[in-house]
């Protein structure tokens, strides 16, 4: 050594992993944080909703009490009209009753689990397809099959899928299939992977040219290692963002389907079919559409806020603040 090593060893600031840094940035974003709290609350509601409406029935969404129909929120159940075992928990209708005297609060609880599970599973399916096809296209895109490349094949198929008006495609398919919550999840998943595929491909194309990926090849790493150790961790951030917003879209789609009567079938409650039932009584019982409508709005908004917050926090260009 021609020089003293101490000369250029500088003291570094405290260590921080890239994920820790993103978390720190995310915490600074007030709106996104509010969205995140709403989502955590929703998650609890959904899980408790499932448990309390179906397994340990505390709130029964299916009890019909015709004498107590169209009660506004926060009304007490009158003991004379309803048999004791049909009365709501605590004797109060927190969110009122509908045209059959069913407890709207219980129905909303049941619906929250449906909405959330449809959102997550549909997005899971669409991510799996999107990442697989996008990754193939981005990494092995130059491989040729006769006159066309893998890239051309996959991306033109993606374009074709994008040409269909998704909602009407889903409507048609759901109308043909037996109505079940699983079919709806699968169909939404199968028709919403195109965006993910496109930007996973774009990320992969950009990453493949990056020096650190070339470096991995030059030290002798195999394709598998290059893809999973170097490219996927760097491509995952935007996928996460679009997944978050994708959940919101899936929830909206499910609500739309249920509203039109093609979704989850009654008596099973979802936010969409509560809304649909309520639309006939807008002037007599406004809470019947206002409550599920607000719930959908708040949840979709929360997912979008969190998505936007993640986008900001994970953006390397906005780093070092």
């Amino acid at each position: 050594m021609t020089e003293d090593p101490k000369q250029y060893v500088e003291e570094l600031p405290p260590s921080e992993t890239p994920w820790q840094e993103s978390l720190r940035l995310f915490r600074k974003d007030r709106l996104a944080l509010v969205g995140a709290y709403v989502l955590v609350l929703l998650l609890f509601t959904a899980v408790f909703g499932k448990v309390l409406t179906e397994w340990v029935v505390v709130f029964d969404p299916e009890v019909v009490r015709l004498p107590e129909k169209f009660l506004p929120p926060l009304t007490f159940s009158s003991t004379d009209d309803v048999p004791a075992h049909d009365r709501p928990f605590g004797g109060i209708y927190l969110l009122g009753t509908d045209e059959l005297g069913r407890d709207v609060f219980a129905r909303m609880l049941q619906g929250s689990f449906v909405s959330l599970s449809i959102g997550f599973i549909a997005v899971g399916i669409s991510l799996a397809i999107g990442i697989l096809l996008g990754g193939l296209s981005g990494f092995y895109g130059n491989v040729r099959f006769g006159v066309v490349t893998v890239d051309t094949l996959i991306m033109r198929f993606t374009d074709v899928m994008l040409c269909f008006p998704t909602f009407f495609l889903i409507l048609t398919v759901v109308a043909l299939l037996p109505p079940s919550i699983y079919n709806i999840m699968i169909v939404i998943g199968l028709t919403s992977w195109m965006g993910t595929a496109r930007f996973v491909r774009a990320e992969f194309l950009a990453l493949r040219k990056q020096d650190f990926v070339v470096a991995a090849t030059s030290v002798g790493a195999r394709d598998r290692r290059v893809i999973f150790a170097h490219m996927v961790p760097n491509a995952i951030a935007p996928v996460l963002v679009s997944a978050t917003i994708g959940v919101a879209t899936a929830i909206l789609t499910e609500s739309g389907l249920s509203f039109l009567g093609f979704g989850v079938q009654p008596p099973y409650a979802t936010w969409g079919n509560i809304l649909a039932d309520g639309k006939g009584f807008i002037f007599d019982a406004p809470w019947l559409f206002f409550i599920p409508g607000m719930a959908i709005l708040v949840v979709v908004l929360a997912f979008n806020l969190v998505g936007e917050g993640l986008r900001e926090a994970l953006n390397p260009k906005l780093r070092r603040r």
């Binding site: 890239p18 020096d211 650190f212 070339v214 470096a215 170097h230 760097n234 390397p316």
Partner: peptide, 13 residues
């Protein structure tokens, strides 16, 4: 190989 750009030649993650 040693690369030109020390910012893109190391995997940030």
């Amino acid at each position: 190989i040693v690369f030109q750009d020390p910012y893109s030649s190391l995997n940030p993650r």
